[in-house]
Design a protein around this nucleic acid. Sequence first.
DNA 1: ATTAGCACTCTAAGGTAAGGAGTGCTAAGC
DNA 2: GCTTAGCACTCCTTACCTTAGAGTGCTAAT
Lengths: 349, 349
Amino acid sequence: MLDERSIRVLRAVIHSYINKPDPVGSRYVTRKYAFDFSPATIRNIMADLEDIGFLSQPHTSAGRVPTDKGYRFYVENLMDENVCCHKGLIDSLTRRLEDLREDIYTLLDETTRTLSTHSHYLGIAVSPGPDGSTLRRIELIPYSDDKIAVILVANEGIINHKILKNNFSFSRNDLNRIARYLNREFSGYTIKEIRQRLLDEMAMDKALCDSLISKALSLCGDAMSCYGANVFISGLTEILELPEFSDIEKIKDISRTIEDKHAVIKLIDSLANAEGVQVVIGAENTVEELKALSIITSIYKEGDKPAGVVGIIGPTRMDYSTTISLVDVTARFLTEILDEGGQEWRKER
Amino acid sequence: MLDERSIRVLRAVIHSYINKPDPVGSRYVTRKYAFDFSPATIRNIMADLEDIGFLSQPHTSAGRVPTDKGYRFYVENLMDENVCCHKGLIDSLTRRLEDLREDIYTLLDETTRTLSTHSHYLGIAVSPGPDGSTLRRIELIPYSDDKIAVILVANEGIINHKILKNNFSFSRNDLNRIARYLNREFSGYTIKEIRQRLLDEMAMDKALCDSLISKALSLCGDAMSCYGANVFISGLTEILELPEFSDIEKIKDISRTIEDKHAVIKLIDSLANAEGVQVVIGAENTVEELKALSIITSIYKEGDKPAGVVGIIGPTRMDYSTTISLVDVTARFLTEILDEGGQEWRKER
DNA sequence: ATTAGCACTCTAAGGTAAGGAGTGCTAAGC
DNA sequence: GCTTAGCACTCCTTACCTTAGAGTGCTAAT
């Protein structure tokens, strides 16, 4: 489809533009990227690339700028794949996450920080959703006369606590018995499975009436409802430094978007199913406010189950090859950390 | 020091500037604020106010702008105190915090959101520091072969969990015994007191060697170390709308500051000791990046002990009287909510 | 003590011109 | 037939100038 020369030119334009967001002209390309042709020839090639839709001109007498389609082609066909030794990243990840491997919230928070300082874009992470993670223990603690603290300890270091109104006023003894029962019945299952079983058993139990058990089940159900995924985003300071965000309006768009966690979760969820690194470029995005941005994500796993998502949000002219491998490495790193924690538990079980 | 007329002028200038950040001129003051004097007279008065340092001119032929010192005088002497029926605020606080009263983190997060939407500035909150809060229960849960999840349930709905490397490998039975011991010994004391007692007892215990107890104590000590205050900030979108932040550099300053939680905590801590609403105006601030901003805070309490701080960060030309009472009302509201939760517990004890 | 009048200052906005970067096209060269 | 030098053309950017307007400070009159 494209001959060697066109590809060289496209690559040159993209690299130049990634480096500095100024339209790149034919003369500049010949000089900077050591072409054996004159600017005029390059101009012809560029005109062709514009016809295909890979480049565009901000105005008649300006240089060329890559389009989303151009980036897409670049990412899929002509990226340098060899940028994979993120020594610095691995180092700081290891250093910063060493002590956190069991508390996934702090861990993800630190991860986004590290991602953003290394990429100079926004680092994002979504914690494992409720469904996938496996319950280790459930603990019931009397909190006040009519309230109970329920603590769910799941895999991946997730600990979720919740304080519930207790309509039945259990004694401490009751609570212990309920806790023992719940642990016997449910630990080792995923939250999703437990929810399902709760539904089943409560349907059955309607007739049957060991009231303590049915109360226990309803308690457990309450505890697991609205136990949602968490979003972490950091690096606003980083992207404020980028020339494309010298316009306040763009910053407003972004800040609006990232303050609305629901929107982010929805966005990320749509990418959470595919294996490997996902790249969404500019207008491919479904969220209006982010159509000027690119998103690179990858899932991390716990054992063999997908757990959550990490990634980076940056301008469309981002340094794809570096950033993609950055995200890739980070996701693998997280998977590894979670595995270490998980193995012990699986062994124990 | 100042005659009636000067005060009227100062108030007029400040009100006008708060409303719209344009230098205000003598003619405008006479017209808008119905003075019986000519612009020339007002000019003379303004010149006097400038001499005292309450007003200043951006440039020779511009109107006047209040200085930090001017705001200070305004806040201390001439503010309308009567803006105190924040019906809307109370309503949305009540509505949004109804179900959260036992989980202080979510509660504070929602509080900052509410504060920022109502004030259109940044809402901030700092959760109770470790020292003041009272331990209700401590719970030890085996997490994996060599790790223990320690869960501290404190007053004010704080639940803090932490996963510790367990160097002694306790059996589940040991853990239960340790937990029972710790609860008997320490529940009802503040974290600060417990830390102190731990130090004392461990010094004594060096000779004495009921090893389980000494291990328990060291475990407890670990759990309580680095259990720090948490900062919540929201409303970036709000302040982006303000005309004074049309300059990117200012936004950078702010975003740098609020991404650095340590700096914020340090800042807030310096205000946490005084009773009532604290107002820091512009350059009175010690943090370089915030010298263009004002900070209004108030402590909220749990029982009679100061628990944490809530407040608002905004431009120096903020609407002090409204904002101050907003913060005041919010702090009282939090105190009330925490009290409801606390009373039950104190009764039970 | 107050104020009308006036000269003066400074900014913000608009308009024009020059400079420059880059293009597309054409015609000549290899 | 592909390449390229040359050239006219377009459009943005910048600087500079001008003008209008808002506001001041001073002075002299009330």
